[in-house]
Design a protein around this nucleic acid. Structure first.
Length: 540
RNA sequence: GCCCCUGUAGCUCAGCUGGAUAGAGCAUCGGACUUCUAAUCCGAGGGUCGCAGGUUCGAAUCCUGUCGGGGGUGCCA
């Protein structure tokens, strides 16, 4: 048995009842009540039907319940118009036993329809080390990809490599100027160029290596490979590194502009070619596809790039995570996808910025001026686990003030350690029991979950079996933050249980039950942290 | 001007596709280690959910207005 199946069973039963009784084809919501006294699942459908069927909520609820109930529940109570369902003990036991004996099945979310999904994120310019903003994007993007994969989708992660264009030219010029300076020649860094120290270091390294690789190629490779390293260190892996330079030479952009023209969505003005975006979204203005000097605008390249994702590579759904300076771009890109017939396939997620706070002042970060806090510094200062948890434990729309001093000082009170500690504690208990000859993995079928009658045990079991619903919900609302928040609350339940009840005690059967619950909690925490790209040490 | 995000406990934030008494972490105060990890637990204090209207059986959640913070806004990427 599996919680998702149980949930579906209740939903379907409810739909059928409503159809039978009132001939309505509604899809009622089956929710989890906050307060456990109201059972495992609840529905407010009686309130919603009250007007339609002209009856009091209470009598509707009673009518619905007055029939054979779904098999997975032991009862349905009507309280104040709500219908509350409680899972039967057999079902609860079977779900938790299944978790222990068949973890792979446990982690399947039985998604109705598996989709081919791409998540694009970070995609920082290869002009310097990745900064803390990219770190947030990396944490959120990689976790979203993990969650979607858990939900049963086929997920590809992608980094768009902006390996051409103005920024790259500026980088080349800055780099070559530094090389010249080191060699003792007169050279100035362009006004808008990259003044950071790292360019100087790279220049020295370039000269020292005595390589014959052209500077522009060398610096791009250098920076890209360092970015890759930083990302891997931050447990963020990209399946595809997509080169903009190659894409520009592929002929796809020419064909997209032709298609947009033949669709009648473009026009000429001031010697430039414009896209009539306002036809698709009245809130936005038209924008330039081909500049008056004949160059392709960034907007055009990105349209072609996104069209390529759907048309050449067949993704059903693409999530692109961008920074807040791309609001305008989001609307334009979505409008253009609409024009090309890919409506609703592209979802641009705007991840809010990270403000660096030092003391009481905001530090303006600028890569060109060389003032940045890099991802590597972040990793060294606060660690991957703490940094990832910090970024993940908030919605992506939330602005984030990152106080580096505070993060350093308080890294030991980061909730991530609280969660990891619960896991380590359980591993320790399991080991202790094993030394006493009680190995829970070998006795899964002997566990008597009905012996768990203490409130702390019951809460823990209920929360454990519902984690897949949290993951599924996170995949639907694209809310990675749901996982950390669940884990904090969940760990609290365990710590509470642990201090009140002895796990390994005199009574062997009870000990086995409590070991079973503990092992299930440890597995669940491991799954949750794994989704977040956070480690689960066995000792702390 | 217009568009997007945001405003919830002293601080950092959950809760927002409307639901049952507004939550967590940190900070503050008071308790708990002879026994499986005290990186823990228990208790206390702390809120007109920015403000004002509206819709609803029901609003932190939806709508309108308003104030504050951040971002975007016709040839940067």
């Amino acid at each position: 048995m599996n919680i998702i199946l149980a949930h579906n069973e209740i939903s379907n039963w409810l739909s059928n009842r409503i159809l039978q009784l009132y001939g309505l084809d509604d899809e009622p919501e089956v929710l989890e009540p906050e307060n456990p006294q109201f059972g495992d699942f609840t529905t407010n459908v009686a309130f919603q039907l009250a007007k339609k069927v002209r009856k009091a909520p209470l009598s509707i609820a009673e009518e619905i319940v007055n029939s054979d109930l779904p098999e997975c529940i032991k009862g349905a109570d009507v309280t104040a118009g709500y219908i509350n369902f409680s899972l039967s003990n057999d079902v609860i036991s079977s779900i938790i036993r299944n978790l222990l004996s068949n973890p792979d099945d446990w982690r399947k979310l039985h998604t109705e329809k598996a989709k081919k999904i791409q998540v694009e994120f970070v995609s920082a310019n290869p002009t310097g080390p990745l900064n803390i903003v990219s770190a947030r994007a990396a944490a959120v993007g990689s976790t979203m990809a993990n969650i979607l994969e858990s939900a049963g989708h086929n997920v590809t992660t992608e980094f768009l490599l902006n390996d051409t264009g103005n920024q790259i030219h500026l980088l080349d010029n800055s780099f070559e100027a530094r090389i010249a300076q080191i060699k003792g020649n007169e050279a100035t860094i362009p006004e808008n160029g990259y003044h950071g120290e790292y360019i100087k270091d790279y220049a020295a390294e370039y000269i020292e290596s005595g390589t014959h690789v052209k500077p522009e190629k060398w610096i791009l490779n250098k920076i890209t490979s360092e970015q890759k390293q930083s990302l891997e260190k931050f447990r963020t892996h990209f399946d595809v590194w997509f080169s903009e330079k190659k894409f520009r030479r592929s002929g796809k952009i020419e064909s997209i502009i032709q298609r947009l023209e033949s669709l009648g969505t473009t026009y000429e003005r001031d010697k430039a070619t414009w896209f009539a975006a306002s036809k698709f979204n009245s809130n936005i203005k038209d924008f330039v596809l081909i500049k008056s000097d004949g160059e392709w605008a960034y907007g055009l390249v990105d349209i072609a790039y996104h069209a390529n994702k759907f048309e050449e590579r067949g993704f059903d759904k693409v999530y692109t995570i961008l920074g807040p300076d791309h609001y305008g771009h989001r609307d334009r890109l979505e409008a253009s996808m609409k024009a090309l017939g890919h409506e609703d396939k592209l979802k641009i997620l705007i991840l809010q910025q990270v403000n660096i706070i030092e003391g009481s002042e905001k530090v303006k970060m600028s890569k060109r001026a060389g003032k940045i806090i890099t991802m590597d510094e972040l990793i060294d200062d606060v660690g991957v686990d703490a940094a990832r948890f910090f970024f993940l434990a908030r919605r992506m729309e939330a602005h984030l003030d990152f106080d580096l001093n505070l993060a350093r000082d308080t890294s030991d009170v980061n909730p991530v350690y609280y969660v990891q500690y619960a896991h380590a504690r359980i591993r320790s208990i399991l080991k202790f029991a094993e030394n006493k000859g009680l190995k829970v993995e070998e006795k899964i079928n002997d566990i008597k979950f009905e012996l768990a009658i203490e409130p702390e045990e019951i809460l823990l079991i209920r929360k454990t079996i519902k984690f897949p619903l949290v993951v599924r919900n996170a995949s639907i609302i694209l809310g990675a933050h749901l996982i950390p928040f669940f884990l904090i609350e969940y760990s609290k339940l365990f710590h509470n249980f642990y201090t009140k009840h002895r796990v390994v005690g005199e009574n062997r059967e009870l000990s086995l039950t409590r070991l079973g619950i503990s092992a299930a909690v440890a597995d669940t925490i491991r799954w949750g942290l794994c989704l977040c790209g956070i480690s689960t040490p066995n000792q702390m």
